[in-house]
Design a protein around this nucleic acid. Structure first.
Lengths: 141, 141
DNA sequence: ATATGTGCAAAGATTTTGCGACCCT
DNA sequence: AGGGTCGCAAAATCTTTGCACATAT
């Protein structure tokens, strides 16, 4: 775990005790935890830590690319009436989303069994990248 | 649009003016709108509609399966430290999530060009379905 | 006529932010 | 020593809910 200190230095971040414990909790988690859930785990090591600090460091880690965000649209509900099978392109910068018709990608085949008892109804491909507007914004600087 | 009345009847829902306008706005949208964004659009037809009604009917539509939710984890941030390429299984009932190693699925090939200027960094497959616990809960009744 | 929906406003939940004390380098 | 972080509490967002009146069937 000493390499975490190096990654902090590389990112220009002070390596505080809170950050070490928080990052370790994220490494050990296999369930894509929420901030609240992480807070519970971290409190077992640092009972005095505040939820605000958890949120603040999560944002810091995300901005430095140390961790990833699974829920690209957690900010608010996103809806659709389209019930045809289709996929999505999501811009990781501005979070805009457009449909990709199912014919645009090859069908998906499972090569390994899913966990026991799981039933899949539909495979949705999320193409993560940059939309035209955000891509040109990035190259311009 | 008269068929919307039938779908309401089928779902046991009164077909109010607000619902008709809201549903039409969803049909016409191509951008996976948020509740707030829908509210703006619907207000052009019904200036007196309230944001609460929009939220309430969105929930009603979702529960009846008339529309779909794109953001399965909008409720809160979900994080991961795993930066290996992998996919996700998401339970549409309890929203739990597990990783599926990339080797478990065939590689994804694009057969149609993406919209001009878009850059894809990564394809992530979301397998939507029911986890073991939720699946057995459903069959039991 | 009755059950359900609507508008309004308050409450709940999640996330961000301002402030003074404290820690990392 | 000095800049950034921490804990705390208040503010900002997003969403749900209780209530009295209106609407759909």
């Amino acid at each position: 775990m000493e390499w975490f200190r190096d990654r902090c230095v590389a990112a220009g971040l002070p390596c505080t005790h809170q950050r070490q414990v928080l990052y370790r909790a994220l490494l050990e988690a296999t369930d894509h935890p929420s901030p609240e859930s992480l807070y519970e785990r971290v409190r077992q090591d640092i009972p005095s830590i505040s939820l605000g600090t958890v949120y603040r460091n999560i944002r810091t880690f995300l901005d430095s690319g140390l961790i990833g965000e699974v829920s690209l649209h957690h900010g608010s509900l996103r809806l659709e009436a389209n019930n045809q099978p289709h996929h999505h392109f999501v811009c990781t910068d501005c979070r805009m989303m457009v449909d990709l018709p199912a014919e645009g990608l090859d069908e998906i085949h499972i090569r390994r069994p899913l966990p026991k008892g799981f039933r899949v109804n539909r495979f949705i491909v999320e193409a993560h990248g940059l939309c035209a507007a955000c891509a040109s914004k990035k190259t311009r600087r």
